[in-house]
Design a protein around this nucleic acid. Structure first.
Length: 305
DNA sequence: AACGCGCGCAACCGCACATGT
DNA sequence: AACATGTGCGGTTGCGCGCGT
């Protein structure tokens, strides 16, 4: 084992004083892959195909475990792997599918072509769990699930819609508007809002759990809510969240009118402006979904339980 | 400029299950 | 049936980078 290989055995200098053992597995490299290793792996797979990872690792000349080779191929080198810039639609799908399947990342990844289970898992941990932590609640708690259902997902849909609108108006395709090339679960529905005044050519797949019941399409819901296809929460759900509907959003209140952290009253237009500010065309698609106002807004709901 | 800190992500680990002998 | 080997999955780790001080 040469010095470089030995140093690659561990990421910290604290291990460099250890003597190499006679275990054959200690001859295996660990840590980041080099360009040379990548090209060796790709060339081998192009010639021999993927699979039989242990024999691949041995025959290719790579001093890597079969597992490591498989992981590198699936998560990085495989054709059509997409990394970074999780689109709004993908974010929406991840939230919906996770609420259905939980931490079954590979299952969720099936419906996001080009995305690996590892990337989705990382997205969940770094973005979603962080928000739960900021709200001081467990990501699996009913409170957080409700927050996702009634606030996060509707606002995500609104952003997708706004993004589609800007596409129609400008004629410039955006990442969001064109990211329809995924295969939804069998029971997912393709929404078509092209006949509404606001939507233009807007399509996206949606979990039927977020579609209104046939009876829920009655006169009770707002136009925006109809468009968003968000089911009216039951009165029980609303009382649990201690919130009430207004302008297609749900507002928390203990006295009939919400207020900001400084005590000033929340106006409906405040939230509409806030919503619009999220949909600025050309904005960072992977920006934090929640601004401070949203965090505070949700904390009010959770604290009132 | 130097330092510390937090975040994102690539990679590793342990376990469970499938398949082969 | 029992064991060995291969594969896949979810959880965890820690490096590298950017940012604030």
């Amino acid at each position: 084992m040469d010095v470089d290989q030995y140093l690659l055995r561990g990421y910290t200098s604290s291990v460099t004083h250890e003597l190499p053992s006679c275990d054959p597995e200690d001859d295996l490299r660990k840590g980041p892959w080099t360009v040379e290793e990548d090209s060796i792996l790709m060339e081998y797979i192009n010639t021999h195909g993927e699979g039989r990872w242990n024999s691949l690792a041995g025959n290719s000349g790579l001093k890597r475990s079969g597992k490591s080779c498989r992981l590198r191929w699936l998560n990085y080198l495989r054709p059509n792997v997409r990394r970074g810039n999780i689109t709004l639609q993908e974010q929406l799908l991840i939230l919906q599918l996770h609420s259905r399947w939980g931490n079954r990342w590979s299952k969720i990844a099936e419906y996001l072509p080009g995305r690996t289970d590892n990337e989705i898992k990382n997205y969940w941990r770094t973005r979603v769990q962080k928000q739960a932590k900021q709200l001081n609640c467990d990501v699996n708690s009913k409170q957080f699930q409700d927050a996702m259902r009634y606030v996060w997902i509707p606002r995500l849909m609104e952003r997708i819609r706004a993004s589609s609108d800007s596409t129609v108006l400008s004629g410039q395709p955006t990442e969001t508007a064109t990211s329809t090339a995924f295969t939804p679960p069998d029971d997912y529905c393709l929404t078509d809002h092209s006949n509404t005044a606001a939507a233009g050519s807007s399509h996206y797949w949606i979990d039927p759990n977020y579609l209104p019941e046939a009876s829920a399409t009655s006169s009770g819901s707002t136009e925006l809510q109809d468009w968003l296809n968000i089911p009216e929460p039951t009165s029980t759900e609303l009382s649990e969240l201690n919130c009430y509907p207004m302008n297609g959003q749900y507002y928390s209140s203990t006295n009939g009118s919400g207020c900001y952290q400084d005590g000033s009253e929340i106006q409906g237009s405040d939230h509409i402006e806030s919503s619009n500010s999220w949909s600025t065309p050309g904005g960072d698609l992977v920006e934090n979904l929640w601004n401070e106002e949203n965090i505070w807004f949700l904390q009010q709901q959770l604290n009132s339980d």
